[in-house]
Design a protein around this nucleic acid. Structure first.
Lengths: 222, 222
DNA sequence: AATTGTGAAGCATTTCACAGCT
DNA sequence: AGCTGTGAAATGCTTCACAATT
C-alpha cells in the first residue's frame, strides 16, 4: 500500500506532460479542435515520436490518420497529473523568491493551488499575498494534516530547509519543490524536486566562451 | 572557430559541477583540506563513481589512496565552468520573479554577476535592486555588445520572450536562462536552459496520491 | 590500505521504422 | 492517404569492477 512509485514511466515523460497541456490549452483557445503529434512537436520543441510515446504510456488517446482532439487530450493529461482533482500546496518562506512564486502560481489556477504560506519572521505575519495570509511557521506543525496539503514548496535558507521539510512531510506532503541548495533527507514515499538557481546560473557559464584561458596544464593526458 | 559545442561531456555532468563546488567551499570553510569521492557522495547525494567520472572528464585532479584537495578541486571546477573569469549577465523583466532572482544572485558573488536589469514599464525605471538600476528595455538594443554580457536571464511574459531573446543574443549572450513558458528560437551556438515553474508544480502533482479517482475507461488495453 | 581513474556492462531514454487504423 | 501506436535499434548516461597509484 505504501509503494507509490510508478516506476514504468520515465520521469522525463511526466515533466513533458504539462508542456503538452499548455499548448493544448492555447490551441483550444484558438478554436483548434484537432492536432497532430507533428504540430505539437513544432510548438513544444519535442519530437513527434517522443510525444506519441509519452502519451501512449497512459493510453491510446488519438485517432489514426487524424490526430488528437485538443479538448479531450487536455482533459486526459489533467486527469493523469491529478490536476482535475485540484492539488493543494503549502509554501514556506515568504521572502522575495517565495512571494514571487506565490503570486506567479496564484495568478491563474493551473490545478495546483497554494492554500497556505508560512514564515518565521513576525514582521511578515499577516501579510496578504494575493489573498493568502502569511502565518507563523509554528502554525504548520499545529495545523498539520488538517491543512490537507499534498505539495510543499521550500523557499527558505539552507539552514532551515531540513527541519521545514520534515514538518511539511508531517503535514502530509508527498511531493516537495525545494529551492534551497540542500539535499533533503525524506521518507522514500516523498518525491523531491530540487531547483537550485545558483547551480542553474553557474552551469550556464560553461556554455559561454569566457572560460577560454590559455590553458596547458590540465588537458586530459590522452 | 564557431563550433563551440563541447559534445563529449554529458550536460548532466556539467550541472553537477556547481553542486560539488558548493560542498567543496563548505568543507574549505570548515578547514577540511582533503575529501574523498565517498564523502562528497554523502554530502551531494550523487554516487562516488559518478563524481569520479564527472571529474575525470576534465582531468585527473585527485590523488589515489588519498582523495581530492578541497581548495585545488574547487579552483579547478571554477576554471572549468568559467567562473574564475567572472561571467556577466543581463536580466530582463524586473517583476516579482526577476527582482527576487536579481537579489538572490547579487547577494553573494558566485562567479556570475548580474550587471544590468531591463524592463518595459516606465514605473520601474530607475529602481535600485541591490545596486543595479532598472533601465528601459530600449537601452538593451542601444547598448548592445558594449554591455559585454555572456548570459541573459528572461523573466518576462510569454508574449515578450522571443523578441527579448533576440535582443539578448544580439547583445552577445551565448547562454539564456528562460523562465518564460515559451520555446525560444535562437541560433545554434546559443545554449538555452528553460525553467518552467508552472511545469514544475504541475508535474509534482503526479507524485501525489490525489489523482486516484475510480477510473475504468482509459487503462492501457494490454 | 585506501582511494582514484576507467573500460565494460547495465540501464534508461530517445529515435527509427513500419504495421495498424480510420 | 494520413497519422497513431509500438517493437526494435540506437544512443546516452550510470553503475560496476578492478587495475593503477600513493
Amino acid at each position: 500500500m505504501s509503494l507509490a512509485t510508478s516506476s514504468r514511466i520515465p520521469e522525463a515523460a511526466i515533466r513533458r506532460l504539462p508542456v503538452y497541456l499548455r499548448v493544448l490549452d492555447e490551441l483550444q483557445q484558438a478554436d483548434v479542435e484537432i492536432v497532430s503529434s507533428a504540430e505539437l512537436a513544432v510548438r513544444t520543441g519535442f519530437s513527434p515520436e517522443q510525444i506519441r510515446k509519452d502519451l501512449a504510456y497512459f493510453g491510446a488517446f488519438g485517432t489514426r490518420g487524424v490526430g488528437y482532439e485538443t479538448a479531450a487530450l487536455g482533459q486526459e493529461i489533467r486527469r493523469i497529473l491529478g490536476l482535475s482533482a485540484g492539488v493543494r500546496a503549502a509554501l514556506v518562506g515568504a521572502g522575495h523568491l517565495g512571494t514571487a512564486l506565490a503570486r506567479h502560481s496564484l495568478a491563474k489556477d493551473k490545478g495546483v493551488r497554494i492554500v497556505a504560506i508560512f514564515d518565521n519572521d513576525p514582521a511578515k505575519f499577516g501579510r496578504n499575498i494575493d489573498g493568502v495570509i502569511v502565518r507563523p511557521l509554528a502554525d504548520l506543525a499545529a495545523a498539520g494534516r488538517r491543512l490537507d496539503v499534498q505539495i510543499g514548496i521550500l523557499t527558505v535558507p539552507a539552514t532551515a530547509a531540513q527541519a521545514v521539510a520534515e514538518q511539511l512531510v508531517a503535514a502530509g506532503c508527498e511531493a516537495l519543490l525545494n529551492f534551497s541548495p540542500v539535499k533533503l533527507d525524506v521518507p522514500p514515499h516523498v518525491f523531491v524536486q530540487n531547483i537550485d538557481l545558483t547551480m542553474e546560473l553557474q552551469s550556464l557559464a560553461y556554455y559561454t566562451s569566457v572560460r577560454r584561458e590559455p590553458e596547458t596544464e590540465a588537458d586530459k593526458p590522452e
